[in-house]
């Protein structure tokens, strides 16, 4: 038994290498999460946390129409934004990976160019484009056309803003997946009679599904928790779950309810990641037959 537990030098090395990551997760994910979970079972009164253990915050959240509305709004927003990012990013990533040649790195960096600035700046820039006096509507009104009310402080404007914010993540995830994909497999499929569409559906898509899943998770989760974009672009009907959550910790000081909202947010995000990664077939995804150096 003792012999079975003996650690080899390689095991120790692996443990040492994983230690920084484990400590990071412990201090910056697990411990704050535990604190939030504890607070979520307390109650707040006049900006004070009271350690009065109860389930009221969760009952309020999950049974009150008001908060369910925010969850539903954010869910619809996250799914829509993820879908739009997916549809837009695949051709971009495919083009860069397959035809980018020696400019691939530059092209990928270009898609991330908006990240060279801060989020506030990017959202403000979107406001300058989409708002009632934004570039787009000014152009339309100068042309004698009616302004696009659809893009003036609406949920559509928020969706557009969020797509613009998170597209680089999706492009990058799919691009990295396509980098290890052997495009010769497509030739094989074509030789065997598959058309381009069928080759894509039966070869490219499933073999890069894991990259797509990572992209979806990277877009869905921050969209669900979004606060700044809906705050500046969403208008009077644009408050999302993240906004209300942030409100609890800021102006209203209702930290206990806010903590419960945080736990629910974490649960929904985890559930999404779990569902999406259940669809990954590890026997296929990620293995393309391409060897290192080929």
């Amino acid at each position: 038994m003792a012999a079975q537990l003996r650690l080899t030098r390689r095991d120790l090395k692996a443990m040492a290498l994983s230690l920084p990551g484990a400590l990071f997760l412990l201090f910056f994910l697990f411990l704050p999460l535990v604190t939030i979970v504890i607070y979520s079972f307390w109650r707040s009164e006049n900006y004070t946390m009271i350690a009065d253990w109860n389930l009221d915050n969760y009952i309020t959240l999950l049974t009150t129409r008001t908060y369910l509305t925010f969850i539903f709004r954010s869910l619809v927003m996250s799914l829509s934004v993820s879908f739009i990012c997916l549809v837009y990013s695949w051709p971009v990533a495919y083009f860069i990976a397959r035809y980018g040649g020696r400019y691939r790195l530059i092209l990928v960096l270009l898609t991330a160019a908006p990240f060279f600035t801060g989020i506030i700046l990017r959202v403000t820039a979107m406001q300058q484009i989409l708002g009632p006096i934004g570039v787009l509507n000014m152009f339309l009104t100068n042309m004698g056309l009616a302004p696009l009310k659809l893009l003036m402080y609406t949920n559509y404007a928020t969706a557009l803003g969020l797509v613009y914010l998170w597209i680089p993540f999706m492009v990058l995830a799919i691009y990295l997946s396509l980098l290890t994909f052997d495009f010769k497999l497509l030739d094989a499929a074509m030789i065997n009679g598959a058309g381009p569409l069928r080759a894509f559906i039966e070869v490219t898509w499933p073999l890069n599904w894991i990259g797509t899943c990572i992209g979806l998770a990277l877009v869905f989760i921050p969209t669900f928790a979004a606060t700044i974009t809906p705050k500046f672009l969403g208008g009077v009907n644009g408050a999302l779950y993240g906004n209300i959550l942030a409100h609890q910790f800021g102006a209203t000081g209702t930290w206990a309810l806010g903590s419960a909202m945080g736990v629910v947010l974490f649960a929904i995000s985890s559930l999404f990641v779990y569902i999406i990664f259940k669809t990954v077939n590890l026997n296929r995804a990620g293995y393309t037959g391409k060897l290192d150096g080929e």
Binding site: S44, N46, T66, F70, A239, T252, T254
Partner: peptide
Amino acid sequence: DAPSSPEKWERVWSEVEA
């Protein structure tokens, strides 16, 4: 001033927002 009951005011505001 501070709202007399931040909890009640929070609920009212959330209902307005929703």
